[in-house]
Computed example of a mutant assay.
Amino acid sequence: MYCIKPWEDLTIQDDYMFKLIMNIKPICLKLLQGILRMEIKDIHYLETEKSMDARYQGKGIRMDVYVRDDAATVYNIEMQVRMLEGTSLFKRTRYYQSMIDADLLAAGADYDDLNKTIIIFICPFDPFGEGRHIYTFENICLENTKCKLQDGTTKIFLNTKGTMADVDESVKAFLDYVNGIVGEDPLVREMDEMIRRIKRENEERVSYMTFAMKMMEERKEGFREGERQGFTNGLAEGKAEGKAEGKAEGVAFSISNMMKNLGVSVEKAMDILQIPADERTKYATLVRQ
């Protein structure tokens, strides 16, 4: 049964708290500067938790953090707490990129003037198994790896389980903090103090509980629909398979409903519903039909 995580137990790994902390400009700015090892004068929030509806037919996405710097580079920062099945995690960056480009073009940009974009996934696991804290990807020529496509797109995966000395100490301290280790780094101390302060704010507590209750209701509705579908199909077909098929349709309904009403991705909806890893491909297929 789905349980609401207590407000007091939320950490930087939890989407809700991560978004609140990253919406504090000085913290977000310092983290970006540390990851990229460059000075950024200022950032502008295009919209925290930016919701983008897929044009034509497709699914929308809701971004954790969506900002633009003073040089017009656009950043999308996401907390990814699960390694998705197969190559889903990596293909997710491709989909996010397409949605960002569509959003920029809809805002009036010309193809030649598309902003430089950097998508950053923060992972409490090693998505590539090489022990790096940071994996940076750009499009290059396979015949000459020094020749870059220069399409202005970059994807970065940060790994909290890295063992190499490949990031700044401040970034390493932040990744340790994602793992639950509070060090003496100034940025980490600032984040931790801010989380403690936020937890004392009753308004944010109420907001979180409202959000969590809505998620719970979505989950309950999905399982109720599953039971209704299963009962109907079971009577119609007179088989156990009919009931199982109806339940699957009900769970798919719940996933779709949660994506629509809460603006979350199919992966996050299945996280909330606690769908087992070996069943996720089946439900993802049903949702996309």
Rank of each mutant, 00 (worst) to 15 (best):
D192K: 02
V81A: 07
F174A: 14
E39K: 14
L29F: 05
D53C: 13
M38C: 05
F121S: 00
F231W: 10
F253Y: 12
P26T: 12
A54P: 00
G129A: 04
S51Q: 13
K59M: 08
I27E: 02
L89P: 06
P124D: 15
A173I: 14
F253P: 04
D278L: 11
E279H: 03
K155F: 11
I134W: 00
Q80T: 08
T73F: 04
Y2V: 10
E267R: 06
H133R: 08
I40T: 01
F18T: 00
F174G: 09
T232L: 13
K5V: 07
Y75W: 04
Y2N: 03
E267K: 07
I275E: 01
T232R: 11
N115D: 13
V74F: 08
D278W: 12
M38E: 15
A284C: 04
Y66N: 01
E130M: 14
S170W: 02
F157Q: 06
I156K: 09
A277M: 11
R55C: 03
Y95L: 12
E201D: 15
E204W: 15
E217T: 15
N257Q: 15
V81Q: 07
C3W: 02
G246A: 04
Y45G: 08
F211E: 02
V182E: 03
N144E: 10
L32Q: 12
D42H: 15
K91E: 10
Q97K: 05
L149P: 00
G230E: 05
S254I: 07
D14R: 03
L89W: 05
